[in-house]
């Protein structure tokens, strides 16, 4: 009997969680989702006329225009990656705060690890001695 109660309570808990998630998906308006996504993308886009700021943090004209354009692109049905490609096609990969992994940036991504590995090997060998 105890086992049945336990199973029932687990099942109801599971149903409650899943129904809540489904409900949450339905009640969040599309505009809010787009606003959130715009913000998320804007946080990864460098403000080209500022120093060390994303367009999300910047109040410059270009940053505002870029945010509006990102929102419009999302509303027109473009996905996140398509928006990033649109921007890097016009301003280069340097507009992305997180550089993409490609042949031009391979050294940028791997050099710190290579140096770290070699340094660790060296240090361990040095102390073994």
């Amino acid at each position: 009997m105890k086992k049945i109660y336990l199973n029932l309570s687990l099942l109801s808990f599971f149903l409650m969680i899943t129904s809540h998630l489904t409900f949450a998906d339905e009640i969040i308006p599309k505009t809010n989702l787009i606003t959130n996504k715009t913000r998320e993308i804007a946080q990864n886009i460098k403000c080209l006329v500022c120093q060390n700021q994303s367009i999300d943090e910047s109040n410059s004209e270009l940053a505002k225009d870029l945010k509006n354009l990102i929102k419009e692109k999302l509303e027109s049905g473009l996905n996140e990656n398509e928006v990033y490609s649109f921007l890097s096609e016009r301003y280069g990969d340097s507009i992305l705060l997180k550089p993409p992994f490609n042949t031009n940036t391979i050294l940028l991504w791997f050099l710190p690890f290579i140096i770290l590995v070699f340094s660790l090997i060296y240090i361990s060998k040095f102390f073994k001695k």
Binding site: V49, E61, L62, D65
Partner: peptide, 11 residues
């Protein structure tokens, strides 16, 4: 400012 962005203009 959309046309400027399409052309990759900074300012």
């Amino acid at each position: 400012g959309k046309i400027a962005i399409e052309w990759g203009v900074y300012g």
